[in-house]
Lab assay of single mutants.
Amino acid sequence: NLRWTSEAKTKLKNIPFFARSQAKARIEQLARQAEQDIVTPELVEQARLEFG
């Protein structure tokens, strides 16, 4: 299971509600691909840039 830093959680809250669950799934996918067990603000930002 993935842990989220408080900064990453804050960044996730800045994503519009309607896109948040999809973004969260993508962020967690990116973390797993990078073999990380902690979601960082950088991963959230990477996903945000993908979504535009």
Results as ranks from 00 to 15, higher is better:
Asn1Gly: 13
Leu2Phe: 06
Leu2Glu: 01
Leu2Gln: 02
Leu2Asp: 01
Arg3Phe: 14
Arg3Leu: 11
Arg3Cys: 09
Arg3Thr: 13
Arg3Ala: 08
Trp4Gly: 00
Trp4Thr: 00
Trp4Cys: 01
Thr5Gln: 04
Thr5Ile: 02
Thr5Phe: 02
Thr5Cys: 04
Thr5Arg: 02
Ser6Cys: 09
Ser6Met: 11
Ser6Thr: 11
Ser6Phe: 11
Glu7Phe: 04
Glu7Lys: 10
Glu7Arg: 09
Ala8Val: 01
Ala8Pro: 00
Ala8Phe: 01
Lys9Gly: 03
Lys11Thr: 07
Lys11Val: 10
Lys11Gly: 07
Leu12Arg: 01
Leu12Phe: 15
Leu12Thr: 02
Leu12Ala: 02
Lys13Pro: 01
Lys13Val: 05
Asn14Arg: 12
Asn14Val: 06
Ile15His: 02
Ile15Pro: 03
Ile15Asp: 02
Ala19Arg: 13
Ala19Asp: 10
Ala19Lys: 12
Arg20Leu: 05
Arg20Met: 05
Arg20Ser: 02
Arg20Gln: 07
Ser21Trp: 10
Ser21Cys: 13
Ser21Lys: 14
Ser21Ala: 15
Ser21Tyr: 09
Gln22Cys: 14
Gln22Arg: 14
Ala23Arg: 03
Ala23Cys: 09
Lys24Arg: 10
Lys24Cys: 06
Ala25Thr: 09
Ala25Pro: 02
Arg26Ile: 10
Arg26Leu: 10
Arg26Lys: 07
Arg26Asn: 04
Ile27Pro: 00
Ile27Asp: 00
Ile27Gly: 02
Glu28Arg: 03
Glu28Asp: 03
Gln29Tyr: 11
Gln29Val: 08
Gln29Ala: 12
Leu30Phe: 09
Ala31Gln: 01
Ala31Val: 05
Arg32Leu: 10
Arg32Val: 08
Arg32Lys: 08
Arg32Thr: 05
Ala34Trp: 13
Ala34Ile: 10
Ala34Tyr: 14
Glu35Ile: 06
Glu35Val: 06
Glu35Tyr: 12
Glu35Trp: 08
Glu35Phe: 14
Gln36Pro: 01
Gln36Glu: 06
Asp37His: 12
Asp37Ser: 13
Asp37Lys: 11
Ile38Cys: 07
Val39Gly: 00
Val39Asp: 01
Val39Gln: 00
Thr40Tyr: 06
Pro41Gly: 13
Glu42Val: 05
Glu42His: 05
Leu43Asp: 02
Leu43His: 06
Val44Arg: 00
Val44Leu: 03
Glu45Thr: 05
Glu45Ile: 06
Gln46Lys: 11
Gln46Asp: 04
Ala47Ile: 12
Ala47Trp: 15
Ala47Cys: 07
Ala47Gln: 03
Arg48Val: 14
Arg48Cys: 10
Glu50Ile: 12
Glu50Asn: 07
Phe51Leu: 11
Gly52Asn: 14
Gly52Lys: 13
Gly52Glu: 15
